[in-house]
């Protein structure tokens, strides 16, 4: 009797556990298929990010640039010291433990100077690129979407702007307009000049992209489905154009940093009391003594320009390759 009871309990328990394990299994299976499903859902954005990750060099660029950003913007919050801290006793000191980058002609800590100059260079580059990108997208979109005479007119205009060689005109504009403004307005002026001279490339690309997109059958399909014009632009054209804009803006940013530093080096860019990497190098090369005997004055800003522009170019290149449809499964 006892045995039977035990047996029954055993059997019951067995049944229960079988039931339990079945439920558990079903749950697991459901979870698995959900996860499996999620794994395979690869949005186009994720595809680009995956491609990007594969390029080690792009990641390196990302890392370097992030580092520079942190040093330029975040660290100074914690270690504020007046960059105009003039100390006549410490003129022209070579790099040492107190002054990592040495000091300049007024005894100011050069590391500070370089970081501050960096902030300006990055800031000017960023705003200039924003202006140029905005103008490029605006002109390119209108030309591409409306076509016809408007397109013709806008592209002729772009051609004329493009015919002006960049550097001489930038210098001329800076000199012609700049003497009326003080230093901080000058900074704005430089941003604007770089912006209005640099939009033509993007405008052309966007116009081309829109023209080809309009021919794509999914645009005809959208019309056939009865989608309003406004929604055609918002939901179909813009998402397909965003990637070019990002690549162009990234590479444009790198270019603008270079141009700004070149302008400042020649004396037509950022001026005192503001400072930028280019301006620092200008002062550093004012005399050949400086060049030969105080190389830290020009090496640090120079290397930083190089590293920044290089890293941004790495990122831009990586993005461009990642977006290239030849890499996607077709």
């Amino acid at each position: 009797m006892e045995e039977n009871k035990n047996k029954k309990v055993e059997l019951e328990e067995k049944e229960l556990s079988v039931e339990e394990s079945k439920a558990a299994q079903a749950l697991r299976e459901e979870q698995l298929s959900k996860q499996e499903r999620d794994d395979v859902v690869i949005s186009p954005t994720k595809v680009i990010w995956n491609n990007f990750k594969e390029k080690k060099i792009a990641l390196l660029g990302l890392g370097i640039f992030a580092f520079i950003l942190v040093v330029s913007f975040i660290i100074p919050i914690f270690t504020p010291s007046d960059i105009n801290d003039i100390d006549a006793t410490k003129i022209y000191q070579a790099p040492n433990f107190t002054n990592w980058f040495g000091t300049d002609k007024l005894g100011r800590d050069y590391f500070n100077r370089v970081v501050t100059g960096g902030k300006v260079s990055l800031y000017v580059g960023a705003i200039a690129t924003t202006i140029a990108t905005f103008l490029g997208v605006l002109v390119g979109s209108i030309a591409g979407f409306y076509g016809g005479k408007i397109d013709n007119l806008l592209m002729r205009f772009a051609e004329i702007v493009r015919s002006f060689p960049f550097l001489p005109l930038a210098i001329t504009l800076s000199a012609a307009l700049g003497s009326r403004y003080d230093a901080s307005q000058k900074m704005l002026l430089i941003m604007v000049i770089l912006g209005i001279l640099g939009w033509t490339g993007l405008a052309r690309m966007i116009r081309g992209m829109i023209l080809s997109l309009r021919e794509q059958e999914f645009m005809v399909a959208a019309k056939a489905l009865g989608i309003k014009d406004r929604n055609q632009i918002l939901r179909h054209i813009i998402p397909n154009v965003v990637s070019i804009i990002i690549v162009s803006a990234t590479l444009g940013f790198a270019g603008n940093i270079l141009v700004e530093s070149g302008l400042s080096f020649l004396g037509f860019g950022i001026t005192d009391p503001d400072t930028s990497w280019g301006l620092l190098i200008k002062d550093a090369t004012a005399s050949s003594t400086n060049v030969q005997w105080r190389p830290w004055l020009w090496i640090f800003p120079g290397v930083l320009i190089l590293l920044t522009v290089l890293s941004v170019n790495f990122i831009g290149d990586g993005l461009r390759d990642a977006i290239d449809p030849r890499n996607n499964g077709r």
Binding site: G262, G278, W298
Partner: peptide, 25 residues
């Protein structure tokens, strides 16, 4: 490829000064 990227990222004035420093001075 890397050389090219370096080439287009290098500010010309920095490169110039570097060369002067090395070869002329």
């Amino acid at each position: 490829q890397v050389f090219s990227l370096l080439g287009i990222s290098m500010p010309s004035f920095f490169f110039g000064i570097l060369l002067i420093y090395l070869f002329s001075m």
